[in-house]
Design a protein around this nucleic acid. Sequence first.
DNA 1: TCGGCGATTAGCT
DNA 2: GCTAATCGCCGAG
Length: 203
Amino acid sequence: MKKLPHSFYLHDDVVAIARQLLGKVLVTEFDGERTSGRIVETEAYAGISDRASHASKGKTPRTSVLFKAGGTAYIYLCYGIHQMFNIVTGPAETAHAVLIRAAEPVEGSAIMLQRSGKKILDETITRGPGNVGKAFGFHTSQTGQSLTSDTMFLADDGYTLDPARIAVSARIGVAYAGADALRPYRFYNSTSPFVSGKKTVLY
DNA sequence: TCGGCGATTAGCT
DNA sequence: GCTAATCGCCGAG
């Protein structure tokens, strides 16, 4: 299990990073409770020119974290309920980010179940960005934290996802973004039951 | 200070 | 498949 180096996040091609993150392991260890999971679904948000990205609204108190250098966590609340976990990428001020939409539990599934309030452990535990936030214990108060720390980081355990299994589609829930909503920026493992949304392959 | 709205989800029908 | 729940953020006034 190798922690991804800071340099991984500084690459300026956010779409390439979103694809490379499939198969990597997301690890959190809050209050001594370690949970980890293999990433199976991501979405790229390409800076201020991407109308689906919060960065398109400019730098505000909420979005300022997006403008930091890569390797930073951007966590925000959606619909008043869901903690959405994003990874800031690229050099400072580019405002690129990758949203983690789904993962497969590797360690600490009992803790994930407890955090989610669910009764049975099934694939909904980490399916969808809101559920990922819950299962891993993310909270908006952690936005702006480094992803190379010991409490919150990404790792490579040697696993490589067969490229033939990677599917690409438009992003989910961004219809308001006009033409940008059609960009092929969503990547997922087509064989994983943990992937959210429709299973149609567009590309 | 106020009103509209969103990178969603769960629970019914 | 459809819809209510739910609240912080942001821009307008």
